[in-house]
């Protein structure tokens, strides 16, 4: 099987700091791959390169086996790859529907849309409502409600729903549960499984070992700018993974 997204030997330096020193990475269709690693191991930089927010200094990125060159966050999107950043990248004072469609708004059909550039606000609200319902994120459907008035978990839900709604192949989630309570984290993990069950692949960065071992199919362990190894929850325990992560065990 061809990986949905694959990185081969990518490097990235910021001045003297060599954040990535030849990393390989791959994720298969319908698979949840977690990326773990200590602070400064290069997790965030790796994700930025995979999502197009940063351009690697060298190495290759392949989507469905084809070599690609991402030029910005919106270029990876054209390949069906959606990213949920830790900062969520939502616009707090815009409403839920506007946020879901931010940057790819739909216009009305006919002359209203082509000449007067009028947005299909009603259609987008209905779609947004349907998406959030399918994912079971919001049971109250006021799509006109500003995101500012939502709780942390609900905002996360909106951001993940946006990825699920528009991504066809892969969702990259950066620390999706970092700011959430236990109950809300559980919901987000359910959400991750749901989008995997829809056939999308998921790449997940997390510090939370129990969560990683709960949802991930494979775990990419990043250490000192390189991929230390890839393990599975079946073959390794969380303690093994931490040992590899910190360098206590060499692979």
């Amino acid at each position: 099987m061809t990986p949905v997204l694959e990185a081969r030997n990518i490097t990235k330096s910021y001045g003297h700091v060599r954040a990535l020193q030849g990393v390989d990475f791959d994720v298969m269709p319908g698979e949840i791959v977690a990326i773990i690693g200590d602070n400064g191991a290069g997790k965030s930089t790796l994700i930025k390169c995979l999502s197009g927010a940063e351009t690697p200094d060298s190495g290759e990125i392949l989507v469905d086996g084809e070599r690609v060159q991402f030029t910005g966050p919106d270029s990876s999107r054209q390949y069906g790859i959606e990213t949920v950043y830790q900062t969520l990248a939502v616009s707090p004072s815009l409403d839920i529907a506007s946020n879901l469609f931010l940057g790819r708004e739909r216009r009305k059909k006919g002359i209203l849309g082509t000449v007067f550039r009028m947005l299909d606000s009603k259609g987008m609200r209905e779609d947004a409502s349907r998406q959030l319902n399918e994912l079971g994120i919001l049971t109250v459907q006021n799509m006109k409600q500003p995101v500012d008035t939502l709780s942390g978990g609900q905002r996360q839900g909106v951001a993940v729903a946006r990825a699920a709604a528009f991504g066809s192949k892969l969702a990259i989630l950066d620390e999706p549960t970092a700011a959430l309570g236990v109950k809300e984290s559980g919901k987000v993990l359910d959400l991750i499984r749901q989008i995997r069950d829809r056939g999308m692949a998921v790449v997940l960065i997390s510090h939370n070992m129990p969560q990683v071992f709960e949802v991930a199919d494979r775990i990419h362990i990043q250490r000192l700018g390189r991929r230390a190894t890839v393990v599975t929850p079946q073959t390794h325990s969380a303690n093994d993974a931490v040992a590899i992560m910190t360098g206590a065990v060499q692979v």
Binding site: V90, S91, L102
Partner: peptide, 24 residues
């Protein structure tokens, strides 16, 4: 209020980094 440009103006003022990451 009724065009994508308008939404983007609000989004840029709200949080310019989020707007950029949203592809604006």
């Amino acid at each position: 209020q009724r065009t994508a440009w308008g939404r983007h103006v609000y989004a840029v003022g709200d949080d310019i980094v989020a707007a950029r990451l949203s592809g604006i």
